[in-house]
Simulated scan of single mutants.
Amino acid sequence: MPRITTNDSVGLHYYDEGDGQPVLLVSGYGAPADDWALQWAPLRSAGYRVISLDRRWHGQSDRPSWGQRMSRHGKDIDDLITALDLRGVVAVGQSMGANTIWAYTSLFGTARLAGIATIDQSPKMINSPDWPHGFYGLTDDNLGTFFTTPEAFATGHGRPWPDPAELDTAIKAAGGRGAESLITPDTYPLLLDHSRQDWRDVVARADVPVLITAGADSQFWPAEHAAATAALNSKATFTLFEDAGHTAHVDQPDAVNERLLSFVGSIRAGG
């Protein structure tokens, strides 16, 4: 089982299969690396090295009592990229995984990246007059208590969530360990830190191609966040996935895989 040890002594599990340009997949809050199983075979078959990370407190990685902040998770990405000596990486993140990539970029730049793709994650989760594309109902006034109960995720918006049993079967059929979610009070500090960040300035300064995608029927925020985010950077484009929610990569895996392959292929062709 491949693992690295971070500079603060945490063991991180990852999957690493295929050859070619590296594509790094980073899962969202509570989700394991196996959440990307429906993307693995298409990316490998197209000639890419596919690396999927279990972030600390996620999947098969260690669960320490420290490091529950986005900056530390960004450093963990750096530790992985450095340990594997990856270059020309296309980093793909879904949900919190996307903002983990922005945290990495904020700290370490894009020297080892060839591109960045995000799946249904607003770069700013708090709604404000200049950004109405945040998490439904989240404001500066209720930030401190908003995510203290699971009910916060039941927004009443968007499409129904995938059936857990069907998703588990699909992930196992694609070679993963199955669907899993690890959302506990132990990780609420991470969720709070995630929710208070604003990555728009990092998006705006990215000097590699950027793809921002959204589920047209996201349960968490208006799909307009994708166009608004892409508008921050001339190197960015956006895509909406119809009949898809926050987990577009499992709601519509064929459409997501096609778009990711097109994006990564355009980077390879261009460089």
Rank of each mutant, 00 (worst) to 15 (best):
L107R: 13
L107V: 08
F108P: 14
G109V: 09
G109N: 03
G109W: 00
T110W: 01
A111M: 04
A111H: 09
R112V: 05
L113T: 09
A114K: 02
G115M: 05
G115S: 11
G115L: 02
I116C: 05
I116A: 06
A117V: 14
T118A: 10
T118K: 04
T118F: 05
T118R: 11
Q121R: 09
Q121S: 13
S122P: 02
S122G: 01
P123M: 04
K124P: 01
S128T: 15
S128G: 11
S128I: 00
S128Y: 03
P129E: 15
P129C: 09
D130E: 15
D130M: 02
W131V: 06
P132W: 10
P132M: 12
F135A: 09
Y136N: 00
Y136R: 08
G137A: 03
G137T: 13
G137R: 04
L138R: 12
T139L: 02
T139W: 06
D140K: 09
D141R: 10
G144W: 01
G144S: 15
T145M: 00
T145L: 00
T145D: 15
F146I: 09
F146C: 11
F146A: 06
F147P: 08
E151P: 09
E151Y: 07
F153S: 10
F153G: 05
A154L: 11
T155H: 03
T155Q: 08
G156M: 08
H157D: 10
G158L: 11
R159S: 11
P160W: 08
P160R: 08
P160K: 08
W161H: 10
P162I: 08
P162C: 05
P162A: 11
D163P: 12
D163H: 07
P164Y: 04
P164A: 04
P164Q: 05
P164I: 07
P164H: 13
A165C: 07
A165D: 15
E166T: 12
E166D: 11
L167M: 11
D168Q: 12
T169M: 00
I171C: 02
I171V: 15
I171S: 02
I171N: 01
K172Q: 12
G175R: 09
G176S: 08
R177F: 00
R177L: 12
G178D: 02
E180K: 01
S181Y: 07
S181L: 13
L182N: 13
I183S: 05
T184F: 05
P185I: 07
P185D: 07
D186P: 00
D186Q: 14
D186R: 00
T187W: 03
Y188L: 13
P189Y: 04
